[in-house]
Design a protein around this nucleic acid. Structure first.
Lengths: 341, 341
DNA sequence: AATAGTTGTGCATACGTATGAACAACAAAA
DNA sequence: TTTTGTTGTTCATACGTATGCACAACTATT
C-alpha cells in the first residue's frame, strides 16, 4: 500500500526507454518521436507518475511558487484583492504562497525566509519592507512586484491604483452636484492610498477654494474600518459647518458613518448630504448603504500585477515598469448623478 | 552582483568544517560542539546563507507547505476562515499554499497536482473531492484534514462545526422568546452546513410542533448570499402566515433579508419579528444589522484544523480523529435575550 | 592500565529531475 | 559514393541537502 512514489526512472523502465527520454517527453519543445511519447505517457499513467517539484526546482533553480505578501486581512478591500491575486496566480499556472506580515515588526526577517523557496516572484501588497530586503530579492534574482506602495524602487516593477485621480473624481462629482461645503476623511494612520486620494481630492478643489464659496476640510478618524466611521459621524455632523459632501478614503469608513448618521440627522436631511466612498467593496453595493463610490477594480489590479510578474519572468533584464490602474466613479444613492454634465 | 546563492558547502569552507557539520549545526538535536556551531553560524551570517528548501524537501521527502483548498471566496465566512487558516498555518512554522477550486469540474485533477509538492498536509474546506482523491493522498502519505465536509472518510481527520446544535440553539432561542410561527431559510443548493443546521433546528422543534401551537416552515432561497436574502424577503413577509421568527443558515442571507424587510414591513412591526443568523461574520455586528446570530468561531475551527494536522504529522498511524467545534448564541438586537431562562 | 562508553566530526551517498554532449540511424544533397 | 544535415535516443552529471557509518579524541568505568 505504502509503495514509494513512482519516479521518472520507474516510468522509463516500464516504457523501455531512458530516464532522460521520459523527462523530455514532458517537455513540448523536445524532439521526441510520437510513438515514444505515447508509450511514455501510457507508462506514466499506469504508474500514477507525478513529477517531483522539489527535484525540478533544484535543477531549474526556480519553483513555480509566487509569494503573496499582505498585512492583515480584516480590511475587506485587501481581502478581496488577495483573493483575486490568488485566482490570477493560479490561472497563470503558478502557485500562490500567502504570507501575512500583519503586526510583525520583523517583516524583513519574515520576507527573507521566502528566499529559501526559490520563488518565481513576490507580489508585495502591504507591509513596509526595507530597501535592503528588496535588494536581497533582486540579488537572488527573484522578481518583485510592488502593488500600491510608496517605495520608489528602481529595481522592482510597480503597479499602482491611480489614487490621486480617484480623489479628484470624487471632488469633481461634488462640484458638479453643486456641493460647496466639503469634508474628506481618512485614517489617522497614513497609508499610501489614503494620502494620495486626499491629495487628489484637494488638488482638484484648489482652484475653487478661492474663487468660489467652496470649503474643504480634512478630518482624521482613528483607523481604516467601520467602527472608526461610526465614531467620526458625531464630529462631522454636529460641527458648525455641517458639510453637504463627504468623501471617505475607504468604503467601510463611509459605511460606519452612514449607520451612525441616523443618530444625528434625519433621513430627509441626510439626502442632502452627498457621500462618496472609495474602493467599491462588496458592502458598498448592499442596499443598506448603496454607496456612491470610486471604484478601484481589484480584479484589474490583480491581473495587472500577475501579468507584470509574468512579463518580468520572460524578460528579466528589461527596464522596471510602472503603471497606474484607472479609477471609475460609481453613482449610487448617496450622491445622485447630476442630470447633465 | 549576480553571484550564486551561498550553499552549505560554501559555509563549510568558510567555517573550516565539512558540509555535514554545517547541516547538523542547524539541527538542534545534533551533537555539535558549541564553538563549532558558533563558527558555522557566523560564516552563514557572513555569506547570507539561506537553506535551499527544494534540496531539503528532496531529502526529507516532505516540504513545509500545507495545501489549503477552498472554493470561492466571495462568501465572507469562507473568506474569514481562510484567513484564519493562513495565519494558523504560518504560526505553526509551515507555509500555506492556497488553492481555489471554485467552479471547477475537475477538482480531482487539480487536487492531484498538489501531490507534486510533497506537502506536509492538505486542509480541505470546500469543494467535493471524490473518494479516490482522498485515497491518493493517503497513498502518498499526505495527511488530509476535512473541515465541515460531508465526506465520512475513514482515513482523513475531520473537524466539523457543530452545525446541528447551532440550528438547535436558534430554535431554542425562539421558543424561549415565545415565538410560535417560525421559518428557516437556507440556500437552494444544499451545503453540508446548511442542511445540518436546518436539521438541528427542526429536530429541536419537533416536540413542540404537535403539542403546542408552534409551526415551522423551511424556505429555500436562490443562493447563499446577500442578494438572495434580499429577494426572499417578499415571499416570507407577505405570506398568509407571517412568521414571528426567522432563522437564516447564513448571516449574509439574513442581512439581505433585513434590508429588504423595510420595504414590506414597518420598523415597528419588524421589532416583533425575531431574526437569527448563523456564523457571526463581521457584517453581523455592524450597527446597520446588529444581527442576533449563532457564532461559529472561525478562529477556533482554524486552530483546531491546523492542530489536527500537526498531531497527525507527529503520530502518522494513530486513528483518524473527529471533532465538532461548539456553537454559541450571540444576542443582538434582532432577537432580544429573554429576561430569565 | 585496560576497557567501555560518549562526543564531535568527516566521508560518502541518496534524493529525482533536467540538460549538454555524444552518437546512431537515416535522409538529403553533392 | 561521400558529405552534410536532421532526428531520436542515451549517458553522464549537477543541483544542495540530510544522514548512516566510520573513526578519532576524550571520559568514565572496571
Amino acid at each position: 500500500m505504502n509503495k514509494r512514489n513512482a519516479t521518472s526512472a520507474d516510468v522509463a523502465i516500464l516504457a523501455g526507454v531512458s530516464q532522460s527520454t521520459v523527462s523530455r517527453s514532458f517537455d513540448p519543445n523536445s524532439r521526441i518521436s510520437k510513438t515514444t511519447r505515447q508509450r511514455v505517457f501510457a507508462a506514466a499513467e499506469q504508474l500514477g507518475y507525478q513529477i517531483n517539484k522539489a527535484a525540478q526546482t533544484m535543477i531549474k533553480k526556480r519553483s513555480d511558487l509566487v509569494g503573496l505578501v499582505t498585512a492583515g486581512l480584516e480590511d475587506p478591500f485587501r481581502s478581496e484583492f488577495l483573493h483575486k491575486l490568488i485566482v490570477e496566480v493560479q490561472n497563470s499556472g503558478l502557485r500562490p504562497m500567502v504570507m501575512d506580515v500583519s503586526d510583525k515588526e520583523t517583516i524583513d526577517e519574515e520576507l527573507h525566509g521566502l528566499i529559501q523557496y526559490q520563488l518565481s516572484g513576490v507580489i508585495i501588497t502591504s507591509g513596509t519592507p526595507s530597501e535592503n530586503i528588496g535588494k536581497a530579492f533582486i540579488r537572488h534574482a527573484i522578481p518583485v512586484v510592488l502593488v500600491n506602495r510608496t517605495e520608489h524602487s528602481d529595481e522592482a516593477d510597480i503597479v499602482n491604483l491611480d489614487n490621486e485621480s480617484a480623489g479628484a473624481m470624487a471632488a469633481e462629482a461634488f462640484i458638479k452636484s453643486g456641493k460647496t461645503n466639503l469634508v474628506v476623511v481618512r485614517s489617522k494612520k497614513p497609508s499610501f492610498s489614503s494620502v494620495m486620494r486626499v491629495k487628489g481630492f484637494l488638488n482638484y478643489l484648489a482652484p475653487f477654494l478661492n474663487s468660489e464659496k467652496v470649503r474643504a476640510t480634512e478630518v482624521l478618524c482613528e483607523a481604516g474600518n467601520y467602527d472608526s466611521g461610526y465614531q467620526i459621524a458625531d464630529k462631522i455632523l454636529t460641527s458648525q459647518h455641517k458639510p453637504d459632501g463627504v468623501f471617505f478614503c475607504m468604503d467601510h469608513i463611509a459605511c460606519g458613518f452612514l449607520d451612525a448618521a441616523k443618530l444625528f440627522v434625519t433621513a430627509k436631511e441626510m439626502q442632502s448630504i452627498g457621500v462618496i466612498g472609495c474602493d467599491d467593496i462588496a458592502l458598498a453595493s448592499f442596499k443598506a448603504y448603496d454607496l456612491t463610490t470610486v471604484r478601484q477594480s481589484s480584479t484589474e489590479i490583480a491581473k495587472a500585477s500577475v501579468q507584470t510578474l509574468l512579463n518580468r519572468l520572460k524578460s528579466p533584464t528589461s527596464v522596471p515598469s510602472k503603471q497606474a490602474i484607472p479609477a471609475e466613479l460609481i453613482y449610487r444613492s448617496t450622491l445622485a448623478k447630476p442630470i447633465t454634465n
